[in-house]
């Protein structure tokens, strides 16, 4: 088991004592197979217990440890040290306010997620005795990739539109709305449209595509957003040219 000498440059911020964030450098010895999260845990356990950051599963399924690593939004548990040379710069996830060290305030995303109603609104409500809702593999595949979102918010950090226009609902929220819209059991598309078809919804997107590039679960939120745009356009024409048709 070989080891490496690594230097991490971490952006620190203590709201009780600091006016603004500043970098702190840590020089440590790491094992070759470590990820950035292992290095952070090592620092916290042995060098500096005051370093604060979020993490949980350490296997890229919970979405807690999103942060900027050498300027790229990544999951700290999925960023292998061996892929980096020189000093590794670790910063809190971009486009969110910094609470403390690497911990960001994620309230904006949580609120936007709620607004798109990311839950089943059944087309035909079934009584429990009537049994399960049934779905074919084809119906599942229609929405499956959008259900893989782990709410890690790397897409928000990558999206320049979200950075410049904080009102923008953002990639993950729209992708999750789209997940439910595509679900054959669901009848809530009309209820979600006012949010995702609004100006701050899909129309703020200019298809940069960075969100899909950084997504660790290959959800492809960019694709979802364009599909929402097309659907919204069809809706608009239907509403104005054939208002007697239900959405």
């Amino acid at each position: 088991m070989s080891e490496r000498a690594i230097e991490l440059e971490v952006l620190r911020y203590n709201p009780e004592t600091d006016r603004e964030p500043a970098f702190q450098r840590y020089a440590i010895t790491c094992r070759e197979e470590w990820v950035v999260l292992d290095a952070l845990n090592h620092i916290k356990e042995n060098v500096d217990p005051t370093l604060s950051y979020r993490w949980s599963c350490h296997m890229a399924v919970c979405g807690s440890c999103g942060m900027m690593i050498n300027g790229e939004p990544k999951l700290a548990c999925k960023a292998f040290l061996r892929e980096y040379t020189g000093v590794i710069r670790v910063e809190p996830l971009r486009h969110f306010p910094v609470e403390r060290d690497l911990v960001t305030v994620i309230d904006d995303f949580m609120e936007k997620l709620k607004r798109v109603r990311p839950y089943l609104m059944p087309k035909d409500v079934k009584a429990l005795e009537a049994g399960e809702y049934r779905q074919t593999p084809a119906q599942l595949n229609r929405f499956k990739q959008y259900s893989m979102c782990i709410n890690c918010m790397l897409c928000y950090a990558a999206c320049p539109e979200y950075g410049l226009i904080p009102k923008y609902i953002g990639p993950a929220a729209i992708a999750l709305a789209h997940r439910w819209n595509q679900d054959s059991r669901d009848g809530g598309r009309a209820a979600r449209q006012p949010e995702i078809a609004a100006t701050e919804g899909a129309w703020e997107c200019s298809f940069v595509g960075a969100c899909s590039e950084v997504c660790p679960e290959h959800v492809d939120p960019a694709g979802a957003i364009q599909q929402v745009k097309i659907r919204s356009t069809v809706d608009w024409y239907q509403e104005h040219l054939m208002p007697w048709l239900k959405k």
């Binding site: 203590n14 709201p15 009780e16 916290k44 217990p49 005051t50 604060s52 609470e99 060290d101």
Partner: peptide
């Protein structure tokens, strides 16, 4: 860590 904000220590 003696802070009162997100003190994971």
């Amino acid at each position: 860590d003696k802070t009162n904000v997100y003190n994971t220590d």
